[in-house]
């Protein structure tokens, strides 16, 4: 059951030094092609914002990057490694669960609905993966988790369960949880869309700080202001293809494609 059809000459991974490289990524659900050949790359330390109307395939693409979804064609390479597949002797093999987990542990993800573990306190949420996956010693993991909580401004809620936290606090704990694995790449899927407007600012502030610290991030968002001030590259997707990509000043302030213009008019 090899899901990948080899449509282009199999290249030896790496070339450009980009941390994330997607080439002609295709993905279908049944007969519906949701991603129709996405090609883009993200350099180390870069922030890329993905914009686009609902159903354009932003979440799907993001989930392909850490192999929560498998792809049907093309290649995704993160840190010089093919995601979800191994390439040997010019052939493509599905990776086993352990290999996939290892790859994912280097790629953090923050979800629209937070997805904190409700039966663990904020602190335990952050410690869970370092202790369980990386086998970090408990006390060291705890010290590190407290540092991370401090970094997102939530030291005072370490012992609280997610149900006792506001949405904005939960999302910041979720970011700290992702950071605890020391990922080289962070994926955000509409991290502020489920939040009350007055809580959005705190989360964006944490993300802004991460960007300033040099974290490589791919952010699906409708916050045009955030994209303008933080992103190095803005990508506008529609109907499963990249319609327009470039620095925010070009894509947001001087869009060339009529679909980009229409979308920006609708959200601003």
């Amino acid at each position: 059951m090899n899901a990948l059809t080899v449509t282009e000459p199999v290249l030896d991974a790496v070339q450009t030094g980009a941390l994330v490289q997607a080439r002609n990524v295709r993905k279908s659900y049944g007969h519906v092609e949701v991603l129709k050949g996405i090609t883009l790359s993200v350099k180390q330390g870069e922030v890329m914002c993905l914009l686009g109307p609902s159903g354009s395939g932003k979440s799907t693409f993001l989930r392909c990057i850490n192999h929560l979804e498998s792809i049907d064609g093309g290649r995704i390479i993160v840190d010089e490694e093919l995601v979800g597949y191994a390439q040997r002797h010019g052939r493509i093999y599905e990776m086993n669960a352990r290999e996939v987990s290892r790859q994912r542990s280097g790629i953090g993800m923050v979800f629209q609905r937070f997805n904190l573990f409700p039966h663990m306190t904020a602190l335990e949420n952050i410690m869970a993966a370092p202790v369980g996956v990386k086998k970090v010693e408990r006390n060291a993991a705890k010290t590190r988790a407290l540092e991370l909580l401090d970094r997102v401004g939530l030291s005072h809620v370490a012992q609280h369960y997610p149900a006792q936290l506001s949405g904005g606090q939960q999302q910041r704990v979720a970011i700290a949880r992702a950071l605890a694995m020391e990922p080289q790449l962070l994926l955000f899927d509409e991290p502020t869309s489920a939040l009350d407007p007055e809580l959005v600012g705190d989360v964006l502030e944490v993300m802004r700080q991460l960007a300033a610290d040099g974290m490589t991030m791919i952010v699906v968002t409708h916050e045009i202001g955030f994209a303008r001030s933080v992103a190095d590259t803005v990508v506008f997707m529609d109907g499963g293809v990249v319609v327009e990509a470039g620095p925010p000043a070009e894509v947001l302030d001087d869009p060339q494609n009529p679909r980009t213009v229409a979308f920006l008019n609708s959200v601003m």
């Binding site: 997805n115 039966h119 369980g132 996956v133 992702a178």
Partner: peptide, 29 residues
């Protein structure tokens, strides 16, 4: 919630670890 499995997977947790530390404790309730 399937989001729990996804969150665990995105952290690099193995299916077995996810089952025993994330899914079963919540299912037990």
């Amino acid at each position: 919630d399937p989001g729990q499995t996804e969150a665990a997977a995105s952290l690099g947790m193995s299916p077995a670890y996810t089952l025993f530390k994330v899914i079963l404790p919540q299912a037990t309730r």
